[in-house]
Design a protein around this nucleic acid. Structure first.
Length: 668
DNA sequence: CGTCAGCGGGTTTTT
DNA sequence: CCCGCTGACG
């Protein structure tokens, strides 16, 4: 055992948390208190002491990043070999693993498609259109989409669900019902159902649950404050036998209520033992005092107070600019000054904001900023924005994946509709309408309607349309053959050529530059799927399984065939939302746009309430290690119009003596 | 069947 | 202001 892996390096609370391994344990870990350290040490301790074998430990996280970080640290503590045997993954990939093995008990086949939020959105739009066929106007769908996504995270997965009586209106209920029916008919599973179906499987097939219960005698869950009711059920099922469940989290950092997380899960965790970690190793006391002062205004929380051995620290810098443009400029100025005077590098600095739209002005200011490096003048502060579109979500990538989805699972109607006329091959709206009406009325899968139509032209289509359908069908069977016999990389290459994918990009995108970019993405896709294939053990993975693996793991992002690592190692200033900053830390943070209606966000106030907004503010403050600057503007463009803005009410909760209020345009 | 203008709507987002 | 979708036209 090396020095750093010894329990002696932990503080008494941390040590207790790592050593208490039996029964139900709740670890309340404040921001920056060494939560991940404790979790990994606890696992290492389980193994070292011989209490558990690595393969008997299951660690569930919310993000791939967290899982990867734990994995990395586990390898250090236990060595590659043993750490690999611990199951460390996200809830979603865990469920994917379970379903991949046993989904046939639920009426799906192993070739099921995985739908992401985009697919679901499209599907809901379609369903609503059908449902409202005779209405003259379509209502806005966002309330429906929101309500449905929330309900599903509560575990409403069929009509018999216990929580099925909380729908606001009949329409939403109907849409939801059809959504579930469609998914089933398409042999498709989405992110929410991944979890729901696993619970369903465990309830219907106790012997399968038994298998997992016997295998995973020790269960640990990270960021427990973010669990939704379905995840709660999952945890309950899995830990039911041995009852060794350790959950780690911080009620003060629960900021995902709007997508179904229940703070109550952590507040009411029924436990044998509670351990609080309150010593923070990240920030100065000044910063922590500000954070403590803000969060203590929340009623719904467990009492906690962070403290740090890092004494003193500089006051929080506050300034109030006339407009959002001035604010952005002032931030750029201060960033350069701060970097100079404190000898920081760009990557030590982050600019955080409540909503993405606030990044625009900042970007412009950073681009414009000129600064001096030694005796040279340099234009522009290097920066990096997080939260853009994921690679696999880009249209062209999803289009190719849609082809693969249909090849593997022709019932995947969502994907089929996506590609049936892409690139344009003369299967237009009218033809499609006729096909889908049969599909809707008789409930016959679109794929079958298509095949029948080709055989005996029941719909009496024109020759031209009929030809187009035939050609499409031939194309798909040719492709199927190819994929069954050839290797993945070659088959995909062939497919792109054969369907003339270049043309579809040409049709969809106007600018030459954008086209080049999209085509690059396509080429990257080919190489990514090739790499993926090379890394598989072919003997163990027949062709159709590896294609399925690829299509399901890619949206879940765990095996990162192409996702560029979201690392902050580059020499750039980081720009991101408060939400995506959770879990990260920076020497210097700039929180911008601290105005009422932005934080607390007025819409959010109505939906999730002020306490969640306050927690968000708390998360933002606790990202800073040494220097924290708070800013706002007196006037800000809102939906194109200049509007007056007031400082956030949360600012007034920070004791004055911690603040240094400065002139907006004259940095210290 | 395909294109383009005009209209409505705009918090956070990982999996 | 900026985006995406709808629906009217060529």
């Amino acid at each position: 055992m090396t020095n750093s892996s010894s329990l002696n390096t932990l503080n008494p609370e941390q040590r207790k948390a790592a050593e208490t391994v039996q029964g139900r344990v709740l670890i309340l870990a404040g921001a920056g208190c060494g939560k991940t350290l404790v979790l990994t040490m606890r696992m290492a301790h389980l193994v070292h002491s011989g209490i558990a074998k690595p393969e008997e430990i299951l660690g569930l996280t919310f993000t791939n990043k967290a899982a990867a970080e734990m994995r990395r640290r586990m390898a250090k503590l236990l060595g590659e070999e043993r750490s690999k045997k611990i199951t460390l993954c996200t809830f979603h990939s865990f469920c994917l693993m379970v379903l991949r093995k046993d989904i046939q008990h639920l009426g799906y086949t192993k070739h099921f498609s995985l739908y992401d939020a985009h697919d679901i959105h499209r599907l809901i739009t379609q369903i609503s259109r059908t449902l409202l066929e005779h209405e003259s106007v379509m209502p806005s769908l966002s309330p429906t989409i929101n309500a449905i996504s929330k309900a599903r995270s509560q575990g409403v997965f069929d009509e018999n669900s216990p929580v099925n009586d909380q729908w606001h209106d009949q329409f939403t209920k109907d849409v939801h019902k059809r959504l579930q029916d469609s998914l089933r008919a398409y042999n498709a599973v989405d992110f929410d159902n991944l979890l729901c179906l696993t619970v369903e499987l465990f309830m219907k097939k106790p012997h399968i649950l038994d298998e997992y219960q016997n295998r995973f005698r020790y269960l640990m869950i990270d960021e427990y404050q973010d669990t939704n009711p379905v995840q709660y059920q999952l945890a309950a099922h899995l830990s039911n036998k041995h009852n060794n469940l350790c959950v780690v989290g911080d009620d003060d950092q629960s900021i995902y209520g709007w997508r179904g997380a229940e703070v109550r899960n952590i507040l009411e965790f029924d436990k044998a033992c509670v351990i609080k970690l309150q010593q923070n190793y990240r920030s100065t006391n000044t910063i922590l005092n500000a954070a403590n002062a803000v969060i203590k205004n929340n009623k719904m929380r467990r009492d906690k107070e962070l403290w740090s051995a890092i004494e003193g620290g500089e006051s929080l810098e506050v300034f109030h600019a006339p407009t959002e443009i001035d604010e952005a400029q002032a931030v750029a100025d201060r960033i350069v000054k701060l970097k100079e005077s404190k000898n920081l590098s760009w990557k030590d600095i982050a600019i955080l904001y409540r909503s993405n739209s606030l990044s625009r002005q900042i970007e412009m200011a950073l681009l414009k900023k000129t600064w001096k490096n030694g005796d040279r003048w340099i234009q522009g502060v290097p920066y990096q924005i997080f939260g853009g579109e994921e690679y696999y979500e880009r249209r062209e990538v999803k289009d190719i994946m849609a082809y693969l989805r249909v090849i593997l699972n022709p019932f995947d109607q969502e994907a089929l509709l996506r590609i049936i006329n892409l690139p344009r091959r003369g299967i237009g709206e009218e033809t499609l309408d006729k096909l889908t009406s049969l599909n809707r009325q008789e409930g016959i899968p679109l794929w079958q309607v298509l095949q029948r139509q080709i055989l005996n032209n029941t719909l009496e289509l024109t020759d031209r349309s009929q030809k187009a359908l035939e050609q499409f069908s031939n194309l798909m069977s040719e492709a199927k053959q190819k994929f069954e016999n050839g290797n993945l990389r070659e088959s995909v290459k062939w497919l792109i050529e054969r369907v003339d994918f270049k043309r579809s990009i040409h049709e969809e995108v106007k600018s030459e530059k954008m086209r080049a970019f999209k085509w690059e993405n396509v080429e990257e896709f080919v190489s990514a799927i090739g790499d993926y294939e090379d890394n598989l053990h072919k003997e163990l993975r027949p062709q159709d399984i590896s294609l399925h693996d690829f299509l399901t793991t890619t949206p879940l992002g765990q095996d990162k065939p192409f996702r560029q690592e979201k690392n902050i190692q580059e020499e750039k200033v980081t720009l991101m939302t408060f939400h995506s900053a959770k879990g990260l830390e920076f020497k210097a943070c700039f929180l911008i746009g601290l105005e009422d209606h932005i934080i607390p966000h007025e819409k959010s106030l109505k939906e999730t309430g002020i306490e969640e907004e306050r927690r968000l503010m708390y998360v933002a403050i606790t990202r800073a290690k040494r220097y924290l600057t708070l800013s706002m503007a007196k006037q800000r463009k809102r939906v194109g119009k200049d509007m007056p803005s007031r400082p956030s009410r949360f600012l007034f909760e920070i004791p004055k003596e911690l603040l240094h209020i400065s002139q907006w345009n004259c940095p210290p």
